[in-house]
Design a protein around this nucleic acid. Structure first.
Lengths: 297, 297
DNA sequence: ATGGAATCTTGCGCAAAACGCAATCTAGCA
DNA sequence: TGCTAGATTGCGTTTTGCGCAAGATTCCAT
């Protein structure tokens, strides 16, 4: 089937121009093509739309009908297309964000409030979830999480480094003593969170023996609860435990140790890099997380 | 530029189907083409419309926007197109007719009233004009006239034959005598209407001398006025003079003479043969003019 | 855990269609 | 009668849109 849109578009332009030649000029099209489009439209609909000879044009009743109603519809399509296209350059609409950073929500929340103030046309919907899985199923634009696994289907933007510490509860440290050298760690009860931390531990204590692991889990909150309860030493990032450190519920150990930082990153779909609301929000986050926000804490 | 209509049509079908494959089936299109149309639409608008991986689809906000508004517009276009297409099979709408048959309007008027009664969905607009020229400029669907000259740009439908008579006013005939043989015509005052009648006269009286023409005009009404005024013998068709004959204002001469009849014909634009209202009206006229209507008078 | 089924994407070759050019035709006008 | 502006149509070229098939990804069942 021929291009219905182009046919009707040409027809409308012809009606508005009064001549095929003028319509052709406005359409940046040859007169021949314009003429043929009209003929094809008439043939497809099986009805004469424009009475014409070499000098005059006039609409049949069917032509008027089509012009009135289809012309409106075409304008509606143009409107919505430009509306949609504007989203590529102007940040507007609803930005749906999901984050797995439970403890960090106190960090993120005010940031998004600032962003929303700065961009009155963007509405923020912030969701928390256990797992960052399912940007697509959840209908989210951005996912913010710690140390996301590489995913070929998703874009990743590094937002900030999140320094890691060794820490434990004062009760535990009082009971088992405060380690002052790395080597002493082997004698302690160590809590392991996730797979990735195993390597950090191994690099820390050296050798192939590995740390003495009393408890391990994949749940960061669970590990925190153990640590608070005095179960042992755990690796935690600043965002996760800054409140506990400030309140004295946890104590940092060997603070001069430079552990590889946890990465705070945003995940988004490749195509969404074109959406202004996504781009502007990611830029905003990267800017405000990187400079000072973490250090100040 | 790509086919905007097909792009959006595919997009809407995808949204409504929930999967590309299903949409492809409904569109009678390959999956590949469907996928590409969506990609092209997104690329043209510069924005991601559908979040997708191999298993799940979900709309972005831009997608929802487009679906709501463009979907409506597409339906509107489908609607008006089917409306217009229906005109090819169902007689509906306004039928604009022009006729040059001044004296015959008393014949045509009741016929159109009957037609309108028979086709309640068709509204008739009947106009009279001096010349049948300008179907296009006047925006008419049908022109009805006597003996139209052949026009390659117009279709012609023969509606009925309109018998011709020689006639003159009783006053003239009383003064100059009633001819009983063709040969006597040469001695009479003859009124000539238009170019075509010259040949009829020539065939009638024979030879190359031609008739004795006292008055000639291209205006049928003018010729009628002369004849009524007793200026001479004129060739007139039944429609033009039946009232005058019935009222005794004119008298037929040599009624056995078979003059070539005048033709009552309809002119219309080639493309309009597809419009049901035009077709049905022409058929109706031909049927009712041919059988009986003329003879009965 | 591993293989299978369903789904989407993409490269490639082909065929259909749309375009522009130019010749032709028509109508109005000097 | 020739001239101009506009519309149609045949023809050759180019675009492009399509289907096929291979590849990739995800979910599910064994």
């Amino acid at each position: 089937m021929a291009d219905r849109f182009a046919e009707i578009e040409s027809f409308v332009k012809i009606v508005e121009s009064g001549t095929l030649s003028e319509a052709a000029r406005r359409l940046n099209l040859s007169l021949a093509a314009t003429s043929r489009r009209l003929s094809q439209l008439e043939q497809r609909l099986g009805v004469l739309l424009v009475r014409r000879n070499s000098r005059h044009l006039s609409l049949t009743e069917e032509g008027s009908l089509l012009y009135e109603r289809a012309g409106q519809a075409l304008l509606a399509i143009d409107d919505v297309e430009t509306d949609v296209m504007r989203r590529a350059t102007e940040a507007t609409g609803l930005l749906r964000i999901v984050t797995t950073i439970g403890a960090g929500r106190t960090r993120l929340a005010p940031l998004f409030r600032d962003y929303a103030t700065l961009h009155p046309d963007v509405a923020i919907h912030l969701e928390t979830a256990q797992h960052a899985t399912g940007i697509i199923e959840g209908g989210h634009d951005i996912a913010i999480c710690f140390d996301p696994p590489p995913d070929s289907a998703l874009m990743m933007k590094h937002l900030a480094d999140n320094p890691r510490f060794l820490c434990a509860s004062p009760a535990y440290l009082n009971r088992r003593g405060r380690p002052h050298r790395v080597a002493e760690l082997s004698a302690h009860d160590n809590i392991l969170v996730g797979e990735a931390q195993q390597e950090i531990w191994r690099a820390l204590v050296g050798g192939d023996t590995g740390p003495r692991v009393t408890l391990s889990t994949n749940d960061a909150e669970l590990a925190r609860a153990w640590a608070l309860d005095g179960a042992g030493i755990v690796i935690k990032s600043q965002w996760e435990v800054e409140d506990d450190l400030a309140a004295g519920r946890l104590e940092a150990i060997l603070p001069d140790l430079r552990l590889p930082p946890s990465v705070i990153a945003a995940l988004y779909l490749p195509g969404q890099a074109e959406a202004a609301k996504v781009r502007s929000c990611l830029d905003f986050l990267a800017r405000h997380l990187r400079k000072g926000a973490l250090m100040a804490a």
